[in-house]
Computed example of a mutant assay.
Amino acid sequence: MNKTAKTILISVIILGLIAFIVYPKVKKEVTEEENSPVPQSSQALEVNAVVAQSQKLDNDLRVTGSLTSNESVVLKPEVSGRVIQINFEEGQRVKKGQLLIALDASEVRAEIDKLNFTKKLNEDNEYRQKQLLKKEAISQEEYETALTTLNTTLAEIRVREVQLQKHLIRAPFDGIAGLRKVSPGSYISSSDELVTVYSINPIKIDFSVPGKYAAQVNEGDKLQFQVDGYENELFKGSIYAIEPQIDPSTRSISIRATSANKENKLLPGQFAKIRLTISTFQEAILIPTEAVIPELNSKKVFVSKNGKVETREIETGIRMSNNIQVTSGLNNGDTVITTGILQLRTGMPVNLNLIPLNE
């Protein structure tokens, strides 16, 4: 065997050995590839979904406001004088007309006593003049002079009695007395504050809403609100007055409501979180907000029908914290997909995990 033939023989033997070693591995890889699962795109995607159902929906407007007293007044004296009596306890209920503070009025009373003596003298003189006039012993003019003197005295007494009442500070309405700002013996003038009286049952709620809701808010509308200190309690009230103009600086309209406050839980100055229902839909379809896909000029959702994905173009209405109202494009009972939105394509099979609608 020559050298060339020997070289060829050795090459063939080496190639045979390589084929013997490599073939089983290649065959195994081909077999594994043939037995591998179908591509991911052909598998049903696991998604969450909710069933769209009609339900009652309140269109609530949430705003903030402040509580104010039904009535409140800072009592000040009309005359100067020295405080001789304080007839109330701070923080206690007072009745309309109740004497709260008395000022020294001894001088006015002395003047009234003096005028009463003058009145008696003038009454006697008027009586005598009347009897003489009947006998035509005096003229009509003389009698009228005596009568005028008597009437003048009576008028002066009434003036002094009014002055006397100004020394007695009384409650203008039923309410609660605040903290007094004077003490017995204090000399006060007409500019000094004595005490504030509050009427807080019912209590008022002042708030504003954007002007665009002006046509939807009416007197008598009901509202609910919460205040600090009673976070777990929901108070109720009703609108009784609406400002007849929109504030040009804020473009909002001022509203005032009242609420019963028999237990005095609500106090003037408290911050209120208000929920005002401006309209109600008896049959509204709600879906989770994350299910809605915004597009350039429309919105759409994915629904599942017979295990396959379909696309629906929708129109929406009221948006809430978690859900949104669908006004068209969905029917009662449609299954709306809420997860895997980026992976979904029309016609794709899906496995549904139905979840309840989160309120």
Rank of each mutant, 00 (worst) to 15 (best):
V350E: 08
G16A: 10
T7K: 14
S190K: 10
T258F: 04
G178V: 00
T289E: 13
L286C: 03
N122H: 11
F20G: 05
L61H: 13
L103V: 01
D113G: 01
T31A: 14
A291T: 06
V108D: 03
R275T: 15
V83N: 08
Q245H: 09
T152R: 12
S41N: 13
I176A: 02
E290T: 10
I84Q: 05
I84Y: 00
M1D: 07
A215W: 00
Q282P: 06
I285Y: 03
D124E: 12
S304H: 02
A171P: 09
E144D: 15
Q85P: 00
S249R: 08
T4A: 13
Q216V: 04
T149W: 10
S279H: 09
L223C: 06
L342V: 02
K299Q: 13
S254G: 09
V182D: 05
N261C: 04
P39E: 09
R275K: 14
K236A: 09
S11Y: 05
T311I: 15
V336W: 01
A137R: 04
E219N: 13
L9Q: 10
A291S: 15
P77A: 08
E156G: 04
L267P: 01
E161M: 08
D113Q: 14
A19N: 07
T346M: 09
K114R: 15
K119G: 01
N59C: 02
K96E: 13
N201L: 03
V50P: 04
L342C: 00
V301E: 06
V26P: 03
N122S: 13
A260V: 12
R158W: 02
I246S: 08
S252A: 15
L115H: 06
L15W: 05
S72N: 15
S259K: 06
I8D: 03
N351W: 01
I157Y: 11
I239K: 05
I355L: 14
N35D: 09
I314G: 03
K262V: 08
L133K: 12
I293M: 10
I253K: 00
S259T: 15
P244E: 07
E142F: 07
V159W: 04
Y198D: 07
K25Q: 10
S304A: 15
K76M: 12
K262G: 11
